[in-house]
């Protein structure tokens, strides 16, 4: 993650020459700081430097903050879900290593997004919402392991589609786009692992990749999460027709996006009233 490049994509939205000077001098100071190592961990960045950047309320920046806060909301959901799962004891002992790793990634994503939103873009990171993972008493993920796994799969596959759907909305910032892509593929790795774990346990027949728009043995409430995944056409090319490869396999080879409203519709099932 190259914060220098990120700062370069942001312009101070201020008419004050003093503010502008301060912004650029801070950016230069930051640039020097960055010379010590290309991969500066965000946690290691002195907040005094970042906090001094003036308002960056440019339309682009406001839009980036909006997208990243949306991502942060989803990461809050995922992190809280895995933390509660690990705390509850519902996860079978040999599988804990898997969910500890996933939990660690989701927590890292939460902190990373908070840092970028709050201290790089000078926005306000959204607070963690209250969650109801029973979805109004319909699920018991923290006392029933198959349910825990089912919702985990649902969240990860949703996360993949959510990030994919925002790629175009952050493409004006190379660094934010690259960071989003780098989270996106981690979510896809999680999804693949959880899907295959469910099948290994005889709970489903799903593979690591999504076949057609199938929900497998997940509850019907997850239909919206997989709707559209059966798509075979990309850029106007029907790949099944082009190649003669069966539609199921072609559908598996491309994951599909969801837009913000679709994802928030899914996530809202798990928000506490």
């Amino acid at each position: 993650m190259n914060l220098i490049k990120l700062l370069d994509t942001i312009c101070p939205d201020t008419k004050s020459a003093e503010d502008r000077d301060r912004f650029y001098s801070r950016r230069d100071a930051f640039r020097q700081f960055g010379d010590f190592g290309k991969k500066v961990a965000l946690a290691a960045v002195p907040l005094s430097i970042l906090n001094s950047i003036p308002h960056v309320a440019k339309a682009d920046t406001a839009s980036l903050i909006g997208v990243l806060n949306y991502a942060l909301t989803l990461e809050h959901l995922e992190y809280r879900y895995y933390q509660m799962g690990l705390d509850s004891g519902v996860i079978e002992a040999p599988d804990r290593v898997i969910f500890q790793k996933i939990r660690d990634h989701e927590l890292a994503h939460v902190r990373f997004l908070q840092e970028v939103i709050g201290n790089v873009l000078n926005g306000t990171p959204v607070a963690e919402p209250g969650f109801d993972f029973t979805a109004g008493g319909n699920f018991t993920p923290f006392s029933d392991y198959p349910t825990f796994l089912a919702l985990s799969q649902a969240f990860e596959d949703t996360g993949v589609r959510a990030y994919k759907g925002q790629a175009a909305n952050v493409k004006e910032s190379d660094v934010v786009l690259t960071a989003a892509l780098s989270i996106h593929s981690v979510e896809a790795r999680h999804a693949s692992m959880v899907r295959r774990l469910r099948t290994k346990k005889g709970l489903d027949t799903v593979k690591g990749w999504i076949t057609n728009g199938s929900i497998g043995s997940l509850p019907a409430a997850t239909t919206a999460i997989y709707a559209g995944e059966e798509n075979l056409s990309h850029g106007g090319v029907n790949v099944a027709n082009l190649t003669g490869i069966d539609a199921a396999a072609v559908s598996e080879g491309w994951d599909e996006p969801l837009d913000m409203n679709q994802v928030l519709g899914i996530a809202s099932l798990f928000l506490a009233n």
Binding site: V160, A168, A191, G208, W209, D255
Partner: peptide, 18 residues
């Protein structure tokens, strides 16, 4: 094209994890 690349990369990541 970015979206299409995004549709493919997550499948590659699913493969890699498996």
């Amino acid at each position: 094209l970015l979206l299409i690349a995004g549709k493919i990369v997550s499948v590659e990541a699913r493969h890699a994890a498996a």
